[in-house]
Amino acid sequence: MYQIDNSTAAATQPASTAPGTPGYFTDGSPGTVPATIVPAEWLNAVQMELINAITAAGLTPSKSTFDQLATAMQGRLINIQTFTSSGTYTPTAGTKSVVIEVQGAGGAGGGTPAASSTQYAVGGPGGSGAYAKSRYTSGFSGAVVTVGAGGTGVSGANGNSGGTTSFGALISCPGGTGGGASVATASGVVFGQVTGNPPAASGGNVVNASGGTCGFGLGTGVGAFVSGVGVPSLFGGGGRSAVGTSSAGATALTTSYGAGGGGAGASGTTSAQAGGNGAPGVVIVWEYA
């Protein structure tokens, strides 16, 4: 593709005229219907649409290259498919390559045991799931997508780990670990921490990131505690902590894909509490022509 460059070409593009009624070309009929005149304005518009598409792709228009528009169109984003539940991936028509993001589910926050009027306890934060990102030009069609469920809180005990999210046999991202539950005590300092090691992603040819296990809950007395804040994922923050008073796990939920749930807390006469549930995983497929 190249821009007109002969001796009769104008140095600058003429100004556009006022819009008319949209229509179609015709060869005309002698003596009754005139053939459509193709004005320079229309040819300039077509020329510049093509030139701009080619240069936007980083190419230099060339007189001797005849596939520049086709080259420019390759790699164009045509659709995004987001899986929040398990299923099978079917590419959109025209998909030539994909970029896939996979996020493991978050672990639940730690629960707290029943406490007496002089006791307090804290739950640790739920960990975030592993994350991976890959680009593929083949082998992705028909892949089974598994979206891990968020870990569930357990009354008076450690939170459950999140489920593994995967894209076929190509990518696997384990869920985050659950938060630990502390004992109920009437003196001293109590901690609630994440249980287990950070989950490791596998299969990502762009990114393989482990899940997070940072943070803890801390209690020093009745009415003086902060439970663990759920570990955030790349998609947002984790469940909030409970501060200073008894708190059920339902207050510590998170909606950020793959993030951990917040820990429960107990202060004074309190029944056993469950930590907040972790958030489920997600698979996002970016489709390119």
Rank of each mutant, 00 (worst) to 15 (best):
G124P: 05
S141I: 05
G163W: 14
G109S: 09
S116M: 03
G151F: 04
Q119E: 15
E101F: 03
S134N: 10
T90W: 00
T164C: 08
G87Q: 02
G109I: 05
S172C: 12
G153Q: 02
P113W: 14
A93T: 13
Q103F: 00
S161K: 14
G126C: 07
V144D: 07
V154G: 00
F167C: 10
S138C: 13
V102G: 04
V144R: 04
G110M: 06
T137S: 14
G139F: 06
P91M: 14
G107W: 08
G159W: 01
T112A: 06
R135Y: 00
S86Y: 07
T137H: 01
T95W: 01
V144Y: 01
Y131F: 15
P113R: 14
V144W: 11
F167R: 10
N160C: 02
G111T: 03
P125K: 07
T88I: 15
S155T: 15
V145F: 04
N158E: 11
P125Q: 08
G124Q: 03
S155Q: 12
G139C: 10
G123Q: 02
G163L: 13
A115Q: 13
G150Y: 03
V145P: 04
G142A: 05
G139T: 11
G159I: 05
E101Y: 11
A130M: 10
Y89N: 13
T118Y: 01
K96Q: 14
E101P: 00
K133W: 04
G163C: 13
K96T: 14
C173T: 15
G106P: 08
G148W: 05
T88F: 10
T90K: 12
G168D: 10
S85H: 00
G104Y: 00
G151D: 00
G107D: 09
T84G: 06
N158R: 03
T137Y: 01
L170S: 13
T152Q: 15
Y136A: 13
T84F: 05
T137V: 12
P113G: 14
V154P: 05
A114I: 10
R135N: 06
G151L: 10
V122T: 09
P113F: 14
G156K: 08
N158H: 07
R135S: 11
Y136L: 15
S141L: 04
G162T: 07
C173P: 12
S155W: 08
S166C: 03
G104H: 04
G150F: 02
G151I: 04
F140Q: 11
G162I: 07
A157S: 12
Q119D: 07
G153L: 05
K96H: 08
G139S: 03
V98E: 10
A169H: 09
C173F: 09
V99D: 01
T112M: 06
G129L: 13
V154F: 03
T112S: 02
Y120T: 15
E101N: 08
G94A: 02
V147N: 01
T152D: 04
A130R: 04
G142Q: 01
G142T: 08
A132Q: 08
Y131Q: 12
Y131H: 11
G123H: 02
V99S: 01
V98W: 09
S86Q: 10
G162K: 09
A149D: 12
Q103M: 15
V145W: 01
G156V: 13
G123M: 02
I100E: 06
Q119G: 07
G127A: 12
S117R: 00
G106N: 00
G107M: 03
S141D: 02
T164F: 02
T164E: 12
I100G: 00
G104W: 01
Y136K: 14
G94N: 07
T164N: 11
G123E: 08
S161T: 15
I171K: 05
